[in-house]
Design a protein around this nucleic acid. Structure first.
Lengths: 353, 353
DNA sequence: GTGAAAGCGCTAACAC
DNA sequence: GTGTTAGCGCTTTCAC
């Protein structure tokens, strides 16, 4: 323990009683000032602020949390990867959380983690948070025994709500299917007979959504739905898939579920003598910062990470602070296809239509 | 407030007294069980655990923190970007923090943030953390008025310790200068007369280090030190720099301070008719996942983010838990140059040596 | 406008 | 091995 001489301890952190004493007011008035409560005279406020400053006072959050039952913090569960999407989302979330006056606690779930989502939620609940953000969860095989019981509002980004009970269960970041659809339309619009898909790992909802949007679009245009090749988001897996696609002369257009895979894909295609976009068109997803600068510059779909984080968090905070009100409605994110040089009409030769 | 009927409140979260009552022991014994303290009979432990389970008891962290003075959490300050380096570091830190039984709190400092590092540290101290990690800080212009006073151990990753007083001030992740030196040596070893440098923003220590390693190596080999071009880490800035480099036929080798810029650089060079690596060799830094799959595959320096995070955190936790012991020593990270296809000997023509 | 009193749920000493 | 007694520094309630 640190406390020094007892009452007017000088070595340890000052508390509100110390401030009150120095300011010549009651402890409660100090509390009022720091909580910006009404009914404090200007004079009292001034004295308190001055005393606090002089002492280097800072409120003890543990005590506040204990007394009020609120921690003023939000926990976020991410996948623990430095992938552009998840990382961008996390940064967006941090910004909004801090702006709204909350603190951020972060917990990762590793892929293959036996405890998985349940363990992460538990850890956050243990720590004490007023709300939870689950960012891009994946389908863990070891299904939970019954739904998780969470007693704070939950926001799920980029996935349908998992089986959990919560005073408020919100979702954000939908629309990936529409975006994937737009990418597919673009390729079809260019004249390609059909579009192949290099999917992300199907345990990720984000990957499922994109696949779904692609497939739906193909079907609605009456096109064949070719077999899907599944990667793991990495450029390496895109490269491996690219070697397969390169074998098949029927492949003239590929929609990859993220830019990294698209880049690996382009490389494999190029190495195999299939030129992009002359022989094969490629569309990525995310619009990572280098997408415009690889060769050829990648046509891709830009994800509105910041907007999604912003809107989702606003709604979560609203749910936390207004437990009895209806949740705010979600709005659909815009679809933003960025056309660059990796897509072109198919060559008139060969498999014409 | 939630508390229901008073003593045996059934609607709100149960506390250790509830558990004690149900288990027929004292509250202190419940505390002992959950803290894994010695001197609890197997029978008492069993009863406590059973009662806790039945009630769905979970320790209240705010109360623990208040009573013990420790929050069992570590705060990390990052730059709020989804850049591969910072994001990888953050993920590495999260893993180790959780493994060591601490919770993670995250605060970003935006570039240009007036409050800057001081504001971030403050926010963490307000929240209450047992230790602070500052990941890749930058030199903010608005210098602080006097050194920051921090009363918990601090670990700085990738930079010299900023002016702050702390019971323990540790650093990790040095050695970027050696890595940059290795990249430069590689180019020199290939026969290039000198090596140009596409630097990162010099407000970043990480960028300063790399520049320093490059310059020192050039000097120690008695080579000219060409003017530095400064980018902002982005592929776009690398592209802009590349257009300049392309004008100058003397440029046969460029060391870029990160892979994104290297990729933009390669693109600009290629567009200008300067082939990579035939006309100009390029080395990047970081080894981002797509580096091996761009055209040409990028020679780069791999950064040991995980190892740095791991070692640094271990030392930080040691300092937190053993305040009176000497800090653990740091070890130098390995230098890992990954040679791929973006570097080659200079062409014999022209500016021979 | 302001203050006194009573906890929040736990850990820390110490006694038994 | 176990229980008792005090707080930790706030917020809350209610009285003035």
């Amino acid at each position: 323990m640190k406390r020094g001489t007892g009452r007017s301890g000088s070595s340890a952190a000052p508390n509100s009683v110390d401030v009150a004493r120095l300011a010549g007011v009651s402890q409660k008035t100090v509390s009022r000032v720091f909580n910006e409560e009404p009914y404090v005279s200007a004079e009292a406020r001034r004295r308190v602020l001055e005393a606090a400053d002089q002492l280097g006072y800072r409120r003890n959050n543990a005590a506040r949390a204990l007394a009020s039952g609120r921690t003023r913090s939000i926990g976020v569960i991410t996948l623990g990867t430095a992938l552009y999407g998840p990382a961008s989302l996390l940064m967006g979330v941090e910004r909004v959380v801090r702006d709204t006056g909350y603190a951020l606690r972060v917990v990762n779930t590793m892929e293959g983690d036996p405890a998985g989502l349940a363990g992460a939620v538990d850890s956050l609940l243990d720590q004490g948070v007023d709300g939870i953000v689950i960012s891009e969860p994946i389908d863990e095989p070891g299904g939970e025994a019954g739904p998780l019981r969470v007693d704070v509002p939950v926001l799920v980004i980029g996935a349908p709500p998992p089986p959990l009970t919560s005073p408020a269960l919100l979702t954000a970041g939908g629309g990936a299917d529409l975006m994937a659809g737009a990418a597919t339309e673009h390729l079809l619009g260019l004249g390609h007979v059909t579009v192949h898909h290099l999917a992300g790992p199907q345990r990720w909802f984000a990957a499922q959504d994109r696949l779904e949007g692609w497939r739906t679009t193909l079907i609605s245009h009456g096109r064949d739905v070719p077999a899907v090749v599944e990667g793991d988001w990495s450029a390496a897996s895109g490269y491996a898939a690219g070697r397969e696609f390169a074998q098949d002369p029927e492949v003239t257009a590929v929609f990859a579920a993220n830019d990294d895979m698209a880049i690996g894909l382009v490389r494999a295609l190029t190495e195999a003598g299939r030129r992009v976009p002359d022989d094969v068109s490629v569309v990525g997803f995310d619009d990572i910062p280098v997408a415009a600068y690889v060769t050829p510059p990648l046509t891709t779909v830009r994800q509105p990470f910041d907007a999604v984080a912003h809107e989702g968090l606003k709604r979560l905070v609203h749910a936390i602070e207004n437990p009895d009100t209806d949740p705010l409605p979600a709005s659909a994110p815009p679809v933003d296809l960025v056309v660059r040089a990796s897509t072109a009409p198919p060559r008139p030769t060969g498999t014409g239509r």
